[in-house]
């Protein structure tokens, strides 16, 4: 292994990038078909796209894991992974920033400005406050209450950050049972969060089309929920790898990367709790 440690590992030619591009192309065609040419062609392309994407993810990550456990990555490669994960999370922060920007703009600019105009044409009973009601309501408007399920969910995610850190410490001290218990607890908390989030959606007295409040609410919480789903899947993969005996107290960046991601999702939720639910 000493030879591998001296040079930066450059992988051999690989089919996974083109497979991944094919998957995204199929998904894009599927999306367009679904929106314009009906369910059947759309679902066929989307299903094909997801199948190819899944094949690519298993194959590509499989390659990387194999290279990692066979000791091809030296400390310089490890540093590359760290930089890249950090910058990737920064790009995710900026993605959420676009939607937070929309929320702040709607609250501070567009709804108050509409209040200054002759606004009876917008919808009957329009009031320029926040949460803004929106058109197409059949029942009385009821915005989401912060101190019910969302507060419980805040507690769940914050706790999951603690259990994950506990698992990380177990990994660094080579306590494998504690590691697995910590991972299982984190995953269970994530799944409970998702269950409550789905319950909350089911009970919501408004929809995606309930004006700009409904739009910002569902896109912000929806994209967050999607990220929690991805994070939970990543945690499950990491736990399975822990179960197979992967990772050493010194080398476990895959674990740390997923932990960083999980904490990022946690922080986004705090922003959501404060600005979408509470204030």
């Amino acid at each position: 292994m000493s030879t591998a440690q001296d040079v930066y590992y450059v992988p051999a030619p690989s089919k996974w990038p083109v497979v991944g591009s094919t998957a995204l192309f199929l998904l894009a065609i599927g999306m367009v078909s679904l929106l314009h040419w009906g369910k059947t062609p759309g679902m066929v392309f989307l299903a094909a796209g997801f199948a190819v994407l899944t094949y690519m993810l298993f194959g590509w990550f499989g390659n990387v894991i194999h290279e990692s456990v066979s000791g091809k990555y030296n400390t310089q490669v490890d540093a590359s992974f760290r930089w890249a994960m950090g910058w990737f999370i920064f790009s995710e922060v900026m993605f959420f920033a676009a939607f937070f920007g929309a929320l702040f703009y709607a609250r501070q600019m567009s709804v108050p400005i509409l209040g200054d105009l002759d606004n009876q044409l917008i919808w009957p009973g329009f009031k320029p406050g926040w949460p803004s009601e929106g058109p197409y309501l059949t029942d009385a408007f009821k915005p989401m209450e912060a101190w019910g399920l969302p507060a419980v969910n805040t507690l769940l995610l914050l706790t999951s950050g603690v259990t994950l850190t506990w698992a990380h410490h177990a990994l660094m001290e080579n306590k494998r049972t504690q590691l697995l218990i910590g991972m299982a607890a984190t995953i269970a908390l994530g799944l409970t969060f998702l269950f409550f989030q789905a319950t909350e959606y089911g009970e919501a007295a408004f929809t995606l089309s309930t004006g700009v409040y409904g739009a910002t609410f569902f896109l912000l919480t929806g994209f967050h929920g999607f990220h929690v789903t991805l994070g939970t899947l990543m945690l499950i993969v990491i736990m399975a790898r822990c179960g197979k005996g992967h990772f050493t107290p010194e080398h476990h960046f895959a674990f740390e990367a997923v932990a960083w991601y999980w904490h990022f999702v946690d922080v986004v939720w705090l922003g959501l709790f404060i600005f979408v639910y509470w204030m």
Partner: peptide
Amino acid sequence: FGTHFFNAAGGGDPTM
């Protein structure tokens, strides 16, 4: 999908 980010009829704004 029926959102009103950029539509004043739902409290949104094309300027946004």
